[in-house]
Design a protein around this nucleic acid. Structure first.
Length: 374
DNA sequence: TCTGGGGTCCTAGGACCC
DNA sequence: TCTGGGGTCCTAGGACCC
């Protein structure tokens, strides 16, 4: 039994490892507004080729456009219907690559920081400090000074908590989420508030009466194992408690695969145009894997038939290859094997590459965010 | 309303081997 | 005739994230 202290101890804050999650505010829209200052304050939507009559979705909307109910992932046609006065711009990936590189270089220049890049506009920063808020503020200032871009920072004692904290800080703010305030902040929120729980998982959890983060944290582990398996079941319960890795992994990211996919403005029907499309996609994929000098060992075909049915097929190749015609022929063969002659809206070809010497270690979860390796 | 394009990882079940 | 138990590899499919 701990004695009651007569007065609170005056202790200096200890130096501890912290995880900071840095997330740029409306990144893509912000980059566009930087080079077209006259757009500041206007509703800006970036998506597709900038033509709202085409099949495309919103990549990012400015805060002004979001006020109209426009958000990422929304069909462009619907977005402009909601916000008729919006300025619609084409996606310019090279511009965002360049801006992103500046931001990440700024983060890597923070003394003692380990940086794990998660995407164009976000990264974990691991740092040992007695004042994570001061570090967060200095990062915001440094990024703004170098790139004219604003960011929000989540401060946490795990990657999961830091990542989730950021949203509460947006825009341009800092928010801290730790073991101390986790349940106070998150306990009553729906499970979808967790990084890695989407609508499908949430629905399966709800089937067991698990609706909130608190419910998940205190759920019967055997129920979760039965529903989700021995790896994912316990993982979801840990997620509900905000428990995750406490270290930031700054080893360079190694891609497992490269793929290209295209949604056709008019559906494909003729075999010749289908095989032509697969050839074009395969050639693009080969450009990417040649750059990495890692051959294709498995071909993934993705097909979206009209009106809206998507399926994938995989085939391992007898020999690793850089030959686009082999990849295209394999994809065509997989497509033929489906025996489905409905018109095609989308085709995708992905090349899974030969792993580097010694395999993938450590396994990375970039772009997924969540489940533990192993 | 009508749904992009880039990724990663997990599970289940069948084939096959010892 | 009835049928083990362990392991690996492969494919199909699902789910999630930015």
């Amino acid at each position: 039994m701990a004695p009651e202290p007569s007065e609170p101890p005056e202790v200096a804050p200890a130096v501890r490892p912290w995880v900071l999650h840095v997330d740029l505010d409306q990144f893509i829209a912000a980059v566009e507004i930087l080079r077209r200052p006259e757009l500041a304050g206007l509703p800006v939507i970036v998506g597709g080729r900038g033509d709202p009559t085409e099949r495309a979705v919103v990549s990012t909307a400015s805060y002004e456009a979001r006020a109209f109910g426009v958000h990422s992932g929304m069909p462009l046609k619907l977005a402009v219907r909601k916000c008729k006065e919006a300025v619609v711009l084409a996606v310019d990936a090279p511009a965002y690559d360049a801006a992103s590189a500046e931001v990440m270089a700024t983060l890597k220049a923070v003394p003692g920081a380990k940086v794990q890049v998660l995407g164009w506009d976000e990264a974990f920063v691991g740092i040992e400090t007695d004042d994570p808020w001061a570090v967060a503020r200095s990062i915001q200032a440094a990024v703004l000074k170098r790139t004219d871009l604003h960011c929000s920072v989540g401060v946490g004692d795990s990657t999961v908590r830091a990542k989730i904290a950021t949203d509460f800080g947006k825009p341009r703010g800092v928010f801290e989420l730790t073991r101390e305030n986790w349940f106070e902040v998150m306990g009553d929120r729906p499970t979808t508030a967790l990084w890695g729980v989407g609508s499908r998982i949430a629905a399966r959890l709800a089937g067991h009466g698990i609706e909130t983060v608190h419910d998940l944290a205190h759920a019967d582990e055997s129920v979760l194992v039965d529903e989700f398996g021995p790896a994912m079941g316990p993982h979801y319960r840990r997620l509900g408690r905000g428990i995750g890795t406490t270290t930031v992994d700054d080893t360079p990211w190694v891609a497992r695969a490269h793929g290209r996919e295209t949604t056709y403005q008019t559906n494909l029907v003729e075999p010749e145009e289908i095989s032509g499309a697969l050839t074009a996609l395969s050639e693009q994929v080969v450009e990417d894997i040649r750059r990495e000098e890692r051959a294709c060992m498995r071909v993934h075909l993705k097909v979206r038939f009209a009106p809206f049915f998507t399926t994938t097929r995989i085939r391992k190749l007898a020999e690793p290859t850089f030959d686009a015609s082999v990849i295209a022929a394999t994809a065509f063969d997989l497509l033929t094997g489906l025996g489905d002659d409905r018109p095609i809206r989308l085709l995708g070809v992905r090349a899974e590459m030969v792993p580097p010497e010694g395999g993938y270690d450590p396994p990375r979860t970039v772009g997924r965010g969540g489940p533990p390796a192993r």
